[in-house]
Design a protein around this nucleic acid. Sequence first.
DNA 1: GCGACAG
DNA 2: ATCTTGTCGC
Length: 247
Amino acid sequence: MLVCLLRPFIGFQQNIINKIMIDTKALRQEQIEKSRLVIRHDSFSTTPNFTPKFIAGADVGFENGGAVTRAAIAILHYPSLELVEYQIAKVDTVLPYIPGLLSFREYPALMAAWQTIKQRPDLIMVDGQGIAHPRRFGIASHFGLLVDTPTIGVAKSRLCGEHEAVGDAPGSRQPLMDHGEQIGVVLRSKKRCNPLYISIGHQISIDSATYWVEQCMRGYRLPEPTRWADGIASNRPFFEQTIQKSL
DNA sequence: GCGACAG
DNA sequence: ATCTTGTCGC
């Protein structure tokens, strides 16, 4: 009982300590160095001509007031987009949320989940930015590099860059620009919903990234891979129930 | 100095 | 991200 009450408090205190202890400057330097390794063009399995067999979605959620990080990877069959496998991993949270350093907070849990999945997806959609990042190394690029698999960054809001207003009609898009460089595409995926921020993660071009996100849309704001990963990682009742029925 | 700031 | 009731629109 006492431990239960103290756990959130301990987690909170640990975050404060970590924030003081971590060398954010070193992490930023690491991003700058690793961003040079990110491949910004299509791999053999990411062009629109190639039909992928499995597409995965990856996302994380938190428990115990942030003390525990819960990662979910959902594997969907393409083009049916039916869920064929999912895995959840829980690890102790290692860092607080710091804008621009999100990947260091989330990748340990994602890697733990990745090591337990049996299918090898052709493509992974990650909840967060790819190269649409101050140092061109968001969570989608970081994770893609670690698992040596094509990834796309599918974020729900903007981290950096600017863009013109996106049209109201679904399918409307605008390039996301930063200092004269296109770092992504802002896409209106659904009526009356905020747009998606799509960017290169790893081993894919921005055109193919946008193409595959659109191929995975099924009437919701998010493409199916990240929609499932998000639902599972966030413990949304609907997904729990649907999973029980399908398997 | 001030505001912005993925999840 | 998470906590959390009602509410607006299709």
